[in-house]
Each structure stands twice: as C-alpha cells, then as structure tokens.
C-alpha cells in the first residue's frame, strides 16, 4: 500500500457522490481502477453501479438535474473540472451500451464515423480494418462492409459497437451490461474479446451476471444500496478474493445468490 500513491491509476474517484436533483443516488465512492485490467462492478438493481460507470465519461450530464461532488481523476485531472470539455473526456473514455446500438448506416460507416468527426487524418480503410480485426468481427464482415449495420445479428452488432468505440482511440472502455441482450454464445465471444482487449485498454464492466464477473474480470467492486437508497461501494478487490473469500457478509450473500 505504501508506494501506491505514486501509481498512475486509470481512473481514481475520491469521495464521489452523485445526485439526481435532490436524490443522492451514489455516496462516498473511492475507487482506484487498475490500468489495462478488467474491473467489474456488480451489485443488486438500483445500487448505482451504472450511474457510477456513466459518470466516468460524463454521460450523466445528459440527465437533467444530475450532478457530482467529489472527484473523478483521469490522468491526474478531475474530469468534472469546469475547464474540461466533456467531448474530449468521451473520446478518451469510450463506452459500449447495454443494448447494441449501431448507427443506421453501413458497417464501414459505423466504425469510420467516430474517427472522422474526431479529425482523424490517416487512412480510414486501414483503421476500419484494424478495429474490426481487434473486435473479432473482420472475418465475418470483411466482404459486407457496405451492408447496413442493422442487418447483423445482435452479438455481431455489439462487437461492431466495440469496434466503433476502438476507432476513436480511447484509453478506457466502459461497458454497461454489454451482454444482457445477447445469447450465451455471443456473450462468451464478447468475454473472450474483452480479455484480448485488456492487453491494450482498461476495461470497466457493469454486469448483473455474477459468473461473468467471476470469469472475465481481474478486479471486482461490489455495490449495494444503503437504507437511504443511496448506493455505495462495500467491497473492492481482486476478483478471486472477492468471490472466494469476501470480507463482508453482504457481499457473500449476494455472490452466493441469497439476494439480489
């Protein structure tokens, strides 16, 4: 613990509170995310895990009345600093959503668009290929690049969304229950993909699926609701530790399926 103060964390939150108008949805979250690892956030419905995830790239800004106190630090800077443009934050910290949401455009255009609007000057064709290869979709779509993205299957669409996120060259990828709309085979493919991507990217995933957190993540944070309905982090540690030897009773109950 002594030399960890100097360590560059991917994301570090300090006493993070998130409010929706007067309602405190999340309280006192102090979390340090290990770079180039997969961190999963688990917990029962309504415990604020998605809220926390979405605060990492300021996607909560679009919810009227939402505000944040405390700090979220990315590369030493508080991303809620008024001098920081949220557009830049979202380019550096990408996001994959619960339901696959490709643009109603061609497969190629889905991947290329983000790069283009972010002023990408190099060869777009190469970038599209690179991102589709990384997201393990290239083999399936390399001859169908001009086909509408919505003609793909759900699992393929979600991998396309990952490719799309990669194309803007983020450092962190946030995934909000990325497999909840997918079948088990597509889910496994995404998990394999996450494992490969974690060599280059920090991945933070919110999941309802305990096995998924156990299988696919290096670190696990367990959130639950307090009596005032505010979510808070109960336990955080190496996944195997949290799953086999939780320090809190509540964590153990949740993981063993006794509630949630």
């Amino acid at each position: 613990m002594t030399n960890q103060t100097d360590k560059q964390w991917a994301i570090e939150t300090q006493d993070l509170d998130i409010y929706y108008s007067d309602f405190r949805a999340v309280k006192n979250v102090s979390l340090k995310i290990e770079p180039k690892k997969i961190t999963s956030i688990i917990g029962p419905s309504g415990c604020g895990k998605s809220t926390v995830l979405r605060s990492f790239n300021r996607m909560n800004d679009f919810i009227p009345g939402s505000r944040v106190t405390g700090g979220i630090f990315f590369q030493g800077q508080n991303i809620y600093d008024p001098r920081i443009d949220p557009v830049q934050v979202r380019q550096r910290i990408g996001m994959v959503f619960q339901k696959p949401n490709p643009f109603p455009k061609s497969i190629y255009e889905n991947v290329a668009w983000g790069a283009r609007i972010n002023n990408y000057k190099e060869n777009l064709n190469d970038l599209v290929e690179e991102c589709l290869v990384k997201s393990a979709l290239w083999g399936e779509v390399k001859d169908l690049l001009q086909r509408p993205a919505l003609s793909l299957s759900g699992g393929q669409q979600q991998r396309l969304c990952i490719a799309r996120a990669l194309a803007v060259k983020p450092e962190i990828i946030l995934m909000d229950e990325p497999c909840s709309a997918l079948d088990p085979i597509a889910t496994l493919k995404i998990e394999d993909l996450m494992r490969e991507l974690s060599a280059q990217y920090t991945i933070i995933i919110v999941t309802h699926n305990m096995q998924q957190a156990g299988r696919a993540s290096d670190f696990t944070a367990y959130f639950t609701m307090d009596t005032d309905r505010a979510g808070s982090m109960i336990e955080y540690g190496v996944t195997s530790q949290v799953f086999t030897n939780p320090t809190h009773k509540s964590t153990e109950d949740y993981i063993s399926g006794r509630f949630g």
């Binding site: 679009f62 990408g94 959503f97 949401n101 490709p102 803007v168």
Partner: peptide
Amino acid sequence: SLRQASYGLGATQWQTIWY
C-alpha cells in the same frame, strides 16, 4: 440510444444532431 452512441464517441451536440 442513437444520441448516446454518438456522444459516447466524442461527438459534439451539433455533430450528433446533424449526423
């Protein structure tokens, strides 16, 4: 979800509306 996808890629509000 379409707006969120666009914002999530670092698009500005105008780019999201226009594209």
